[in-house]
Amino acid sequence: MRRPAASLVAFAALALALLGGGAQAGDIAPHERRSGRTFMAPETQAMQADDTTNPGMLWVLQGAGLWDEKAGTSGRSCAGCHGAAEAMRGVAARYPAFDPASGKPIDLAGRIRQCRSARQGAPDLARDSDALLALTTFVAHQLRGMPIAPPKDPRLDPYRETGRQIFTTRMGQLDLSCANCHDDNWNQRLAGSAVTQAHPTGYPLYRLEWQGIGSLQRRMRNCMIGVRAEPFAAGSDDFIALELHLMQRAAGMAIETPGVRP
């Protein structure tokens, strides 16, 4: 029971500092932006940098298999329409994007699910299922090294604004917003762990704590549980809006998928 108690004290201390401090640093200046990778120990950074030690590559391998596998009533594979996965370079860097069919923004995992059910006629893949994570990781991996490029689509603007509001709204029993930590105190530590700037450069990423790969939404759910708020539903509009805001915030930063985090 020692660890939860210690982190509780740290959380409370941070909450007090935030309530008492008052100084609002606001947005991070573009030249100060740092990937979460740069906050990690050198050993963990090396683990991510080398494909022979990066466990996320196991999901890239699985995704590559699924990409070429025929599925559903159409009898077609992803490759059957899209060709080699390299063709997805540049396409995936702009997600979440506006989906005219639903009139709402959609993220990469949502698009893959939609493609499977509408075009392949295949059974739906659950969010956070291994197969969907593998496909998403495989597609996002094609973009490694490319900058995050949020689309300049005015239809997305209201959702981005919603995302920004969620990011800056205090929530949960600890009454903390995302910005309280990730904009104003990213250089501090929380229970021994780096707070970081929350740039979604490596998702889906392999978290050593999870002993597996996980989505950005899973990470955000973790954070919401941390401040003792009720997490949004998986794939909900609120999460997509937050993703939109995070991508805008990290526009131009290099994609690292699959990232490794402690």
Partner: peptide, 8 residues
Amino acid sequence: MTRALVSV
């Protein structure tokens, strides 16, 4: 499906 990565 086996998911194994070996490096030699």
